[in-house]
Design a binder for these strands. Structure first.
Length: 490
RNA sequence: CGGGAUGUGGCGCAGUCCGGUUAGCGUACCGCUCUGGGGGAGCGGGGGUCGCAAGUUCAAAUCUUGUCAUCCCGACCA
């Protein structure tokens, strides 16, 4: 057991906070609700960005960058949109400071004619721009993504899961037809789902949001939902079919082949640094972070065990040979030859940080031409010959990646329950948690009542047709065409 | 915005009720020696406007008043 480290069972949220801090991922800043992402945490985010960015480009998207500030009047052009975000906007009212007896103060002379909103999302500024970019069907589809920070003035924040400022990507596309826009929305949901499974080793549900959970301004919001180890759901990504709402609000039209003017169809989709939270809570254990190899900044760490400088030098020769062999196979490896920390300290440290594999080399290994290989996911150790260490590690990393995904799938399967009555629903929710499949009559009123009484929300209506079957709503007894997924959520 | 709590070396805390030596402990930090296959040990060392302001007093971390900040629980949320 790790020193002074809370367990998941004893205090799940404290366990999460401690992992974030002690694995050096992020810390709270002096700015309320805002975090500092530390180098190790940022390196993981960069791995995610790299994989996602490639997937976006492979599906025909290009990156661009739009302003941080949005004129206040833009936000109010789409009614549902402004209503959704109005309560959590940071507003810039002045553009200058001046000195006074009490230090620097806002210069009242420097008031902005029109206030600027710090973007909570960029639909409005982007659609205002697209208006000028789109004239003809020849300009469509327009497939743009931007990597940016956004600000949503949250009351209660938690590192990575909910912060006032966060990093994300937002894709914004314009299409000639409704069908094409819906196809894009679904395609990008697929990209997110693939990324979650194949890179993060997190198995997700794909579904649609109910009307109440829908993005402000969207006709349909699609989502991927992951299940955390405490049985709570986490929305890990969203993809919206925006219909013609923004095209109409910003008057974005195109000339068809026939010469008619029509409004374009829109989508937007995003994932954020919240993925870091999903990653942490999916795989980590009571010894700290556990990272899937494909997302780990360092996949292998080599720790020397030695007495005196001579022995370290001898070990370093072997270690550097291994480093070269692994790098040749594109495996990221770090040889930690610092003399300022003991081997045992290093073992614990890299375990905290979730490095997937560790190689230890000591005097015994030098004699036998072996190394000790430890894997983080299963906490097992094995002595292996140094000869084919590169292929051994290469295979091991693949195994670890697969093992983590399999464990995550098992966890989700074991914590997904089907219920037929409201009593059963409440009982399952309080005793087991997890995803709960149940019939629902399709009304916001029922959804709201269940939420008030149990704190569980409808996470999504599954795209997968297996949940489509006639039944009765667990709350009202009214007819239902399909089961939906309920859970308590982050 | 409602309810509860807390501000004391970098971090975590004790001391406050009942005012009185040089403000203490753990950890982290610096140095030296021994160590080194799972968070090592000994010795030595540095670091504090006790959140801020005013007041009571011979004397305030401790009492009074004000003020600021943060955290937790509710309503809202990627």
């Amino acid at each position: 057991m790790a020193k002074n480290f809370p367990t998941r069972k004893d205090n799940y949220s404290e366990w999460y906070n401690e992992i974030v801090k002690r694995a050096d991922l992020a810390e709270n800043s002096d700015v309320r609700g805002c975090m500092v992402i530390k180098p190790y945490g940022y390196a993981i985010w960069e791995k995610m960005q790299g994989a996602l960015d490639k997937m976006f480009k492979d599906t025909g998207h290009e990156n661009a960058y739009f302003p941080l500030f949005i004129p206040k009047s833009y936000l109010s052009k789409e009614a549902a949109h402004v209503e959704g975000f109005a309560k959590e906007c940071a507003v810039v009212t002045h553009y200058r400071l001046k000195n006074s007896e009490n230090g620097v103060v806002v210069d009242p002379e420097a008031k902005l004619e029109e206030e600027l909103i710090v973007r909570p999302t960029s639909e409005t500024i982007i659609w205002n721009t697209y208006k000028n970019w789109i004239q003809s069907y020849r300009d469509l589809p327009l497939l743009i993504n931007q990597w940016a920070n956004v600000v949503r003035w949250e009351m209660r924040t938690r590192l990575f899961l909910r912060t006032a400022e966060f990093l994300w990507q937002e894709g914004h596309t314009a299409h000639a037809t409704k069908e094409e826009a819906i196809e894009e929305t679904e395609k990008m949901l697929g990209v997110y789902s693939d990324f979650a499974e194949n890179w993060m080793a997190v198995s997700v549900l794909k579904g649609k949001k109910t009307e109440t959970e829908r993005f402000a301004g969207a006709l349909d919001t699609y989502c991927i939902e992951a299940l955390m180890q405490d049985g709570k759901a986490l929305q890990a990504g969203t993809s919206h079919f925006l219909g013609q709402n923004f095209a109409k609000a910003f008057d974005v039209t195109y000339a068809t082949k026939e010469g008619k003017n029509e409004h374009v169809w829109a989508t937007s989709w995003g994932v954020s640094t919240r993925l870091m939270g999903a990653l942490i809570m999916s795989h980590s254990d009571d010894l700290g972070l556990v990272l899937p190899p494909k997302i780990a900044p360092t996949q292998v760490v080599i720790v020397p065990i030695y007495k005196g400088e001579d022995q370290l030098n001898e070990i370093a020769v072997k270690a550097n040979e291994i480093v070269d062999k692994l790098r040749a196979k594109n495996i990221s490896v770090k040889f930690d030859n610092r003399n300022t920390h003991k081997p045992g300290w290093k073992f614990a440290e890299y375990e905290f940080k979730g490095v997937p594999t560790r190689i230890a080399i000591g005097p015994r290994d030098l004699q036998n031409n072996t190394v000790e290989v430890a894997r983080r996911d299963e906490l097992t150790k094995e002595v292996v010959s140094i000869e084919n260490i590169d292929t051994y590690i290469e295979n091991l990393l693949v195994q670890i990646q697969e093992n983590l995904l399999q464990k995550n799938k098992n966890h989700r399967a074991q914590n997904t329950h089907t219920v037929n009555t409201y009593e059963e629903f409440k009982e399952t929710l309080s005793s087991k948690g997890g995803f709960i499949l149940a019939h629902w009559d399709g009304t916001s009123e029922t959804e709201e009542k269940i939420k008030k009484e149990t704190k569980a929300t409808i996470r999504c209506i599954l795209l997968d047709e297996s949940s489509a079957e006639e039944g009765m709503c667990i709350y009202t007894g009214k007819p239902s065409k399909r089961k939906v997924v309920f859970a308590k959520a982050y």
